[in-house]
Write a protein that binds this DNA or RNA. Structure first.
Ligand code: SF4
Ligand code: SF4
Lengths: 134, 134
DNA sequence: CTGATTATGGAAATCACTCGTCAAACAGAT
DNA sequence: ATCTGTTTGACGAGTGATTTCCATAATCAG
């Protein structure tokens, strides 16, 4: 379940928006503030809004803001929006990925690991994440 | 912690060797039996013997066999031998990978996730894995 | 000793995916 | 209409995984 840099950026981005609720924020600002390449960030917020985690507004006075409360966005949500799934091995996503999966003895291990990981990440949202430090 | 195909092969390979204890087995045989490209498998068993998980014997009647009992080889051992670590995010391996790590609020999450994952995988060895099915 | 057998090690080809850029098209506000 | 800022798709460098090939070294059997 390698966390890709894209996902890491996404998390930083949502973290930033958690502090600026309600008024839309421009990509440029987030990019500078969080040191993320701007054009790359464009792609990221796009994905996030398609996943209904962010809401986008075009035109002047446009930008992005959270589509739900920080407490209702979990780390797992973000990871799944960005890279599909939090599984370690392809066969834990889809049995068909490996033709041995029906007989393979290791297969259940990855399934279980995936469950554990997801449970943990589901429990972490941007409400209980944000205010602790900073 | 994406499980790479190399690691998956390594696991299948050790699984096979768990059933053939004591007499060395030739790479060719493992490759055919487990449907792994032979030349690639050569590289894999090499890594595994450098990690003291397999033992190698040259010459005729040579081959590979487990260096320890199946019960003493955990999934975590294999993963670490093959891909270094079982962490999801680079910063969980080495703080220096990210210059934000000292202030980042998400950092501890990855550390904790890594611990959980490792604990789980450490508990699974090739003794309690192998005989269940087959 | 000789020859067959098998692992070792390095170089390199191929492939897929990630990271990041660019530019043109589109939509909202004034 | 114009300005601002998002949307979208195409594109390219770079990185790492996967895989093959070959020349070399060690070991065993005769
Ligand atoms: S061999 Fe087993 S563990 Fe590996 S991908 Fe196939 S089903 Fe999953
Ligand atoms: S930003 Fe935080 S979570 Fe992401 S790599 Fe850096 S320390 Fe880790």
């Amino acid at each position: 379940m390698e966390i890709t840099r894209q996902t890491d950026y996404a998390i930083r981005c949502i973290l930033y928006l958690s502090g600026k609720q309600d008024q839309p924020t421009v990509v440029d600002e987030i990019a500078q503030e969080m040191s993320i390449p701007k054009s790359f960030l464009s792609k990221i917020v796009q994905k996030l809004s398609r996943a209904a985690i962010l809401e986008s507004f075009r035109g002047s006075k446009g930008g992005f803001k959270l589509a739900r409360k920080p407490a209702e966005i979990s780390l797992l949500d973000v990871i799944e929006a960005m890279q599909g799934t939090a599984a370690a091995n392809k066969c834990a996503v889809d049995k068909a990925q490996c033709n041995l999966s029906c007989t393979c003895i290791v297969h259940p291990v990855w399934i279980e690991l995936r469950k554990q990981t997801e449970d943990y990440l589901r429990g972490i949202n941007f409400e209980n994440l944000h205010p602790k430090a900073y």
